[in-house]
């Protein structure tokens, strides 16, 4: 696998104009992704993870958003690029699997039409060729009796099957980068495992890069090379997956992990909940955005925003008093 950089995001800011002011949904995010690698973006609702992935795709409405910074795909700037240029990238270079397979498919079009459409538009395949490719794609994503399903409408399929169809559509034009936004949320555990296996297999076969956006640390723990943790529009920690789970530095990452119920823990294990709520992105706090809820917060945290610094190779975090370092109160003892 090559180390060629496929995607580079630098200091990306996204804000939405609302009647109450600008909502700063993404506040200076930088990331890089190499060919064939998987990046997990983890965060709770409102953390900006979905906005970030849509900004990378160029899917946000131009009229109501302000996007600054840089998104380079294969060295080419694509942030705020003209729609015609983006259309050439979509499907053939970057494709996306959305969360809700119920609403992302067109309910009045047959499955077959929805898969052949990108093939005919982007790859200029003939009707016959497109159908052949579509059937082979349906087979690859594990849909039983593809010939019958080709004629089916989305409503005739289960949620898991619809998500497989979404994946088939996304993969139709052999993209180099697949964005998967909560691809398994709302699916049953057994189906979730099937879909994650399928994505991993296809990614491996095609040497495709993937961004896996999720709220579930369990989904990214064993299926990503690197993880970015987002909170209130900021990247608060970034590390290779193993490093993150072994030596997490940001208290928010720890809090997120501790509030997740674990199969390994005995029943009635008290969960460590994160008290309070995320900050209002209309008026983000001056200091660390997590400081109002952070059990370790000091005076400085409320006053000054910690920058994202690379403390060890590949491991960055935005925290004045990281978990891995000795704490001030511990030092004074």
């Amino acid at each position: 696998m090559s180390d060629r950089t496929l995607l580079e995001v630098e200091d990306l800011h996204v804000s939405f104009a609302t009647s109450r002011g600008a909502v700063r949904a993404v506040q200076g995010v930088s990331l890089t992704l190499n060919q064939g690698k998987t990046l997990g973006i983890v965060g709770e609702s409102g953390s900006g993870k979905t906005v970030l992935s849509r900004a990378i795709m160029g899917l946000l409405p131009r009229s109501s958003t302000t996007q600054t910074g840089s998104v380079r795909y294969n060295g080419t700037e694509i942030l705020n690029a003209p729609n015609d240029d983006l259309r050439k990238l979509w499907s053939t270079h970057i494709a996306m699997v959305f969360q809700d397979p119920m609403t992302s498919l067109n309910p009045v079009q047959r499955i077959g039409n929805q898969i052949t459409e990108p093939l005919k538009i982007h790859l200029k395949l003939s009707k016959g060729e497109a159908k052949e490719t579509a059937l082979s794609l349906l087979m690859q994503v594990g849909i039983p009796s593809p010939v019958e399903r080709y004629q089916a409408y989305p409503a005739q399929l289960s949620g898991g099957m619809r998500q497989r169809v979404m994946i088939a559509i996304a993969l139709a034009c052999a993209p180099r980068l697949l964005m998967a936004d909560e691809p398994t949320t709302g699916l049953d555990v057994t189906v979730q495992a099937q879909i994650l296996d399928l994505l991993g297999q296809l990614q491996h076969d095609r040497d495709m890069a993937m961004i896996l956006v999720t709220h579930d640390l369990g989904v990214v723990a064993t299926r990503t090379d690197e993880i970015i943790v987002m909170y209130a529009g900021n990247v608060v920690e970034r590390a290779p997956t193993n490093v993150l789970f072994k030596s997490m530095a940001m208290p928010y990452t720890e809090a997120l992990l501790k509030s997740t119920p674990r199969l390994a823990n005995p029943s009635h294990t008290r969960l460590t909940a994160i008290e309070g709520r995320p900050p209002d992105l209309l008026h983000p706090p001056a200091g660390c955005p997590f400081s109002p809820r952070c059990p370790y917060a000091q005076e400085k945290c409320h006053r000054e925003r910690p920058p994202l610094v690379e403390a060890a190779p590949g491991h960055s975090y935005a925290c004045w008093f990281p978990l891995t370092a000795a704490r001030p109160q511990e030092v004074t003892v």
């Binding site: 099957m161 495992a193 099937q194 579930d216 369990g218 723990a221 789970f245 674990r262």
Partner: peptide, 22 residues
């Protein structure tokens, strides 16, 4: 079901689809 569940720990064996189909 237990084999399919994901755990937030890279050290645990990766969950994999223990059941096929629906």
């Amino acid at each position: 079901l237990l084999a399919s569940a994901v755990e937030p720990d890279p050290e645990t064996a990766r969950s994999s689809a223990a059941l096929l189909g629906e």
